[in-house]
Write a protein that binds this DNA or RNA. Sequence first.
DNA 1: AGAACATTCAACCAAATAGTTGAGAATTGA
DNA 2: TCAATTCTCAACTATTTGGTTGAATGTTCT
Lengths: 125, 125
Amino acid sequence: MKNSTLKNDDAEDAYLDDVFHALSDPTRRALLKQLSKAPEKVTTLAEPFDMSLNAISKHLKTLEKAQLIDRDTSGRTSICSLRADPLVSAQGWLDHYTRYWTGNLDAFAQHMKTETKTEDGDEQQ
Amino acid sequence: MKNSTLKNDDAEDAYLDDVFHALSDPTRRALLKQLSKAPEKVTTLAEPFDMSLNAISKHLKTLEKAQLIDRDTSGRTSICSLRADPLVSAQGWLDHYTRYWTGNLDAFAQHMKTETKTEDGDEQQ
DNA sequence: AGAACATTCAACCAAATAGTTGAGAATTGA
DNA sequence: TCAATTCTCAACTATTTGGTTGAATGTTCT
């Protein structure tokens, strides 16, 4: 599922939709900020927010869909963490983003393709 | 209006909301891509899209609100262009974004504050 | 002046969002 | 076993969004 051969521009677009949409909410950015310090379980993550646990759970799902966070569920608790690879490679990712701004969206999309492909163990960079 | 002294985290958050939201739509990203090649008037921009001119006009307004594009209206036509300063400084901007991912959102916010302040001729970095 | 053009405004609609509450499912611990 | 904990699912609501159409505004051209 989600094989590299199926990847096309629409998929890139959808991925970017997800990422940017995920980042467009202050609560979600705050969650990411929190997770950038340390992985945490849902309840702990939700505590600081003046919002129901359910709302946070949904936000986390949005972040997960955008592949910005991971979950490690064991037992009844699930630990959320910033996604390892996108973050380790964030420098390169955003470097390509810069190219987007300077007009070379294609290179950016190309990079996106590669980044998302790696999770299928397909190929690297 | 929008003085530096009024700038606080909420304003930063609102700005980021606008930017990321603007980027979360494929049509708007396509518009940016187009504008990254050359400034264009609204009608020309709208042509390739299977969408009413009005819809494009709205998208442009969204991009304008996010301060990603500028408009130069003369007569009945208004020429849209990628915003000069945010794009020239996009490298630095995104460099700070990277810090966001590595956990230092505060530095990022600080940079955002500066970036948006400059348009009031307030101060630089 | 009058017609064609460029753009936006206003009102409307369907779909998506962000939140709520309440129930349910599974896990843990007494 | 039974109660408490952790989390998600489902249904609902209000608001926002992305699109539409039609009218309005202003500009240019003849």
